[in-house]
Structure formats: C-alpha cells, structure tokens
Simulated scan of single mutants.
Amino acid sequence: MQPFSSLAPAKPSVVFDTYWRFAAERQAVFHRRALGETPPWTDDEILREYKFTNAYRASDRVSQYLIRHVIYEGDQSSEEVFFRTILFKLFNKIETWEMLSQELGPPTYAEYSFERYDRILTRAIEGKRTIYSAAYIMPSGSKAFGTTRKHRSHLRLLEQMMEDNLPARIAEAPSMRKAFELLLSYPMIGDFLAYQYVTDLNYSDLTDFSEMEFVIPGPGALDGIRKCFESLGGLSETDVIKVVAERQEAEFARLGLEFHSLWGRPLQLIDCQNLFCEISKYARVKHPDVAGVSKRTRIKQKHRPNMEPIDYWYPPKWGINERISNGAGTRTENGVDHHGGE
C-alpha cells in the first residue's frame, strides 16, 4: 500500500482532533511523571479523573515489568523466552508472576510441572486472590481442554504450544503476520490476543519485526475509529490506523501540538491502535454526543496514581535506553522530532 498523503477519502469527525490532543497530553503526563514531578501532572480534568493507558504501549507498568523482569531476566534461549512471556501474558498480572516466582523460583520450562503450577494457582484462587488482570477478557477454554478451571486450560494451552515447538516456529516466521497466524491457530486465542502476544514476543530477541509492519484493531479501537470518522470512505479500520501512524507528524503540526515522543521513537501502529481504544473512552466524557459502536457512555476505571517509580527500560534493539540515561530531549516542533545526540 502506498503512503497516505491525506485522510481522503475518510471523513474525520470532531473527535479526530481530540485524538491528537489526547495523545500529546497523555504523553506529556508520562514525561512529567518520569521526571519525578508531583501530581497533578495535567490540567485536563478527564485525564485527572479517569484511568488511561500510556500513549506508548511499552511504557505501561505491566509492559515495563514484562520487558525488564520477564523477557530479559533469565535464560535467553528461544524456548525459555517464549515460555516466560506467554506464561506471564496469560495472566497479565505482576502479582501472579511474583507469586509463582516466590513459590517456584524463576519460572522455567526446563523445570515446569503442571501439578506444581496448578497447586499454587488453585490455592491462590481458593484464598480469594485475583490471578488474572482485568485488562483482557480471557476465555475459559473449558471445551478445548476439558477443564473446569480457567488457569488449568491456560497451562494446558502453554504446554501444547511448547510441545508443538512453537517458539522455534515463531522465531523462523518471515513476518509479523505469519507469527500472528501461528498464535491464532491455537484454541482460546482470537485476533486481539494473538496480536497482543506477537507484540509482546517481539519485545524480545526471539523476533525482530517492525511495529510498523502489521496491526489488528481490537474492539475498543474499532469503537474509537468510528468516533473519529464520520465515514471511512471505503478504507478498512486497519488502513485508518496506518493513515494516522504515517501522518502523525503532519497532524501534530496542523494542530500546533508539541509532542514529546518516546526518546525519538515515533508512535507505532500498536500505539496508534491503543490510542483509538483510549479515545473511545475519553470521548464518552469529552464528546458524549458522538456515538461509536459499543454504545457505552461511562468510563469505569478512576485514576488512582501508583506512586511507585518505574525505571523505564525498553527493548535494547530499539536503541533508546542510552537516550534515557543521557537525558536526551524528546521535543517535537512542527511535526519534527528532536532528540539529543543526533
């Protein structure tokens, strides 16, 4: 597909400009927090009251934990990196990973035992502990694996992946789409989860796909896209995400917005997809008269600042960790990103 020189034939709504303003302000909040400023980090009343993910997916607390403490700690063989990453993401909850680590030591496939993992997780459930994040709706898998407990189905799913030599097959995949399709072929994994998982695996050295290569819009993003555009003009939702990613500098410049990037890394397709999901929520308050496809009218999660600091660290292959430690700038003026040392 050729690069988009304009939004045509899609017709943006009033929410489209809000998309860019939200992206700029949410990223500004991220940098203010990273610099150690005290709250409130914004004058935007909606951002202050409700919870929204970061503009960059990899900056969220769970992604940061995954990258630093799950993917890049421990054996870096394809098999072990895959095992740790998918095990963590099946629950997507830091506390569950730490519980397993405390009981078992660092989780490894070499020492994996269904019975031991099941015993720990079952005991946690019976103790009224929440072992799954609320971020994703995880299917139970009772039909696929004949179990009555969701966590047992997920352990069996991971076992099946490992027995099928999926880590090596993912590592050999010629494209992000092919790796996505391999994950999608498994029970309990639909388009949304397969795309999330391939993105997480791609933080590691198991694969080295560009995040500008492939995107799958999730349910929230589909709703946000419909709010941002009165008409798609025949474009698919995937096309729209590619449009906004390719045009980000022009759009920030058009609105006179100063966008502080991720130490020189522009928004990627996964980030623009996530931003559509977040604008779907934000618009419920900012533009209550603009309907999407979900028909939801309220934002459920309130903003409760977690004051525990994060030592931000990203996949080394991105080449931005040195810029963080050097305090390089991230200012965007007139759509041009400036970062120190270049």
Score class of each variant (00 low, 15 high):
A55G: 15
Y112E: 00
S6R: 13
Y109D: 03
D17C: 04
D289G: 09
Q273I: 05
E249F: 07
P40A: 12
I320L: 11
H287A: 02
E258K: 08
A173S: 14
P217W: 05
S325W: 12
K51N: 11
D271Q: 06
I86R: 01
S140C: 07
I324F: 14
I131Y: 02
L87I: 05
W97H: 10
A58F: 08
R169Y: 03
Q76M: 11
A250I: 06
G341Q: 11
N92P: 01
L184K: 13
D208V: 02
L155I: 14
A8R: 13
G190V: 06
L47A: 09
R247F: 00
L206M: 07
T148G: 14
K93G: 00
S204R: 03
H151P: 12
Q64A: 00
P219V: 08
D239Y: 05
G233I: 06
E308L: 10
E249D: 11
L166D: 11
K295L: 02
P217L: 06
S113Y: 05
M161F: 13
H338C: 07
L267K: 09
V81P: 03
G264D: 04
S78K: 06
Y136L: 09
Y56K: 11
G127S: 15
E115R: 04
C228H: 07
Q273E: 13
I299V: 13
I310E: 01
V15K: 07
W263Y: 09
F252V: 01
F145M: 11
P315H: 14
A134V: 13
P40F: 15
L182H: 06
R156F: 14
D60I: 01
I94E: 06
S185D: 14
L7S: 04
H69Y: 13
P139I: 15
M176K: 15
F114Y: 10
I189Q: 00
S77M: 06
F192T: 10
P217K: 03
D271S: 06
P139D: 05
L183R: 02
S231Q: 03
Q2G: 11
V14Q: 13
R61M: 00
Y72V: 13
K300C: 01
R331I: 15
E80R: 06
H303P: 00
